[in-house]
Design a protein around this nucleic acid. Structure first.
Lengths: 163, 163
DNA sequence: CAATATCATAGCATGTTGGTCGGGTATTGT
DNA sequence: ACAATACCCGACCAACATGCTATGATATTG
């Protein structure tokens, strides 16, 4: 079971745009560099996101892309569904257009896939891009703290070596 | 995002075997008929399940397959993982062998995929084949009540088709 | 020994993935 | 005006996975 790179890369890109929200439009080139993705492939993905109304573009020099709305109003689920289509771990529990199988009502295993689909949706739809940005900030802070201690120990070791 | 038919069909087959647990070995032919699957394809799937130690086989006439242990000791997750491999919505959160990406620690989006993977695992590993059998029984009971009237109409339609 | 079933391997059409290539077109700074 | 920048668009492609089918063995029973 796997998502394609579309959802994976696309979410990375959207997170990148979210971190620059409010500023000047971000050129794809820099997104691609930071997230280490190919510009040309990213162009395809962002085109889909634009058509889905999740990002806005500014053409020409000094142009680029920006989120179409607030990061806290864009759910991970919006991004992933735009790029990968509706959730459908198996055809008969497709979010939009479930394929009715011949066994229809007495297909018990169906409830398993339904639960899986719902639990994925629950995760994707309860996390916004803003949440990810917050997480990134927190993690940055932690890192600084941890590094302070590391540096202390490093200094200590050094002084001990000196003895 | 989708599971392949392997997990889908395989779970159906295992559910079928679970419903016959304790009795004589069940030939694939009858499993295939009940679940409307191709015998030959099913052979491939069940071979995998056998090598994974989830089913036992009895060769020769009057042979067939049976669960290797109690239905309540076989989780949906066991079956699906055997057929589809370890859960890995994206490579960097692979259950067994996660591919470390260059960004490693500051890859924030990773936590999303991790949560998705865990939520899928949680569903798959909390449902056993015995649970599905129980569900099937309950549903049968309900159906009997509801269908008293429906069957009347169905019989009528059938007799008309027969003409 | 014939019928039944499992077991094993090879092949194959089709579709998806994960891109690249080669062009456009719109906007800006000089 | 005219580069330079950057978005936009469609075609194409190799490689792989999927969902089978086909063929033929091997084991067991009556």
């Amino acid at each position: 079971m796997r998502f394609s790179t579309r959802g994976h890369y696309g979410l990375k890109a959207m997170f990148d745009l979210a971190q620059h929200y409010g500023g000047a439009p971000v050129p794809l080139k820099s997104v691609a560099a930071r997230q280490s993705l190919s510009v040309q492939y990213l162009e395809q993905l962002i085109a889909i996101l634009r058509k889905a109304g999740l990002v806005k573009s500014v053409r020409g020099a000094q142009g680029g892309y920006m989120l179409a709305r607030n990061p806290q109003e864009i759910k991970v689920g919006d991004v992933v569904r735009a790029l990968e289509g509706p959730l459908a771990p198996v055809d008969c529990v497709h979010e939009i257009d479930p394929k009715v199988c011949d066994q229809a009502d007495d297909c018990i295993t169906r409830i398993v896939w339904e639960k899986i689909r719902n639990s994925i949706a629950q995760v994707m739809d309860s996390i916004t891009l803003a949440d990810l940005c917050r997480e990134a900030k927190e993690r940055e802070g932690k890192e600084k703290k941890e590094n302070k201690e590391k540096r202390k120990r490093k200094r200590k070791r050094k002084s001990e070596e000196g003895v």
